[in-house]
């Protein structure tokens, strides 16, 4: 079945390259001829704040820049507290991609709020949605700094999951990343795709119904 479009929330904290991630994804979907609306509203101010991007592509013009809770197909999250913030907004068959990276909330550091008692990774796994957890610690590589390039790792992962042409996606990366960073980015991209391949081989394939 032809993909008529998807609603994606991309979440994390400042400095994780979320804007680049959504930018690369938008270039990719533009090339496929989709209509797009991307809202990077949250996370304007200082460091330490959350970043939340609403990314919608469709074969019809996109109306609302914000996705209604319940209409989200994918949550792609680079920080697991942020993953928890958006879980409720997924569709029943929505999918979660979440890094296990965690930056303690500043309000917890300042003791204005209590830390969550339970292990966040377990909470995410327990959700009724299909979840893909990526632990950057497990995938450290001498070729690139995974803590800085999780965005491109995630891009490779997502492309593999969706069954997209890696050549096309890699071309988008090449066209939009400064020349001196391309090599590292490609390594990161391939890593993401490889992790996804291994993961998908163990899970039942879900890409067919997307």
């Amino acid at each position: 079945m032809q993909d008529t479009g998807k609603n994606i929330i991309i979440a994390g904290v400042g400095g994780q390259g979320i804007l680049l991630f959504s930018n690369l994804l938008s270039k990719f979907y533009m090339k496929l001829g989709y209509e797009l609306k991307i809202s990077d509203v949250i996370g304007l101010g200082q460091r330490g704040g959350g970043v939340e991007s609403h990314f919608r592509y469709s074969n019809k013009p996109v109306l609302s820049p914000f996705i209604k809770a319940g209409d989200v197909d994918f949550v792609i999250s680079f920080e697991q507290t942020e993953t928890l913030r958006y879980l409720h907004s997924l569709k029943e068959d929505g999918v979660v991609f979440s890094s296990t990276y965690e930056l303690t909330s500043t309000s917890v550091n300042a003791r204005l709020e209590k830390p969550m008692a339970e292990c966040k990774t377990e909470m995410i796994k327990r959700s009724e949605n299909k979840t893909f957890i990526i632990d950057p610690e497990e995938h450290k590589s001498p070729d690139f700094n995974i803590s800085k390039m999780m965005n491109v790792v995630m891009l490779g992962y997502y492309a593999e999951f969706r069954g997209y042409s890696h050549d096309d996606m890699i071309q988008v990366v090449k066209d939009n990343v400064p020349a001196k960073f391309i090599e590292g980015n490609l390594k990161a991209y391939e890593k993401g795709a490889a992790i996804a391949r291994a993961e998908l081989a163990t899970k039942e394939s879900v890409s067919s119904n997307c």
Binding site: V13, G45, Q46, R47, G48, G49, G50, T81, L84, R85, S105, T106, S107, V108, A110, L112, E113, K114, P115, M116
Partner: peptide, 9 residues
């Protein structure tokens, strides 16, 4: 119970 994020320097 998901804690909010206060901006910091």
């Amino acid at each position: 119970g998901v804690p909010f994020r206060l901006p910091v320097s």
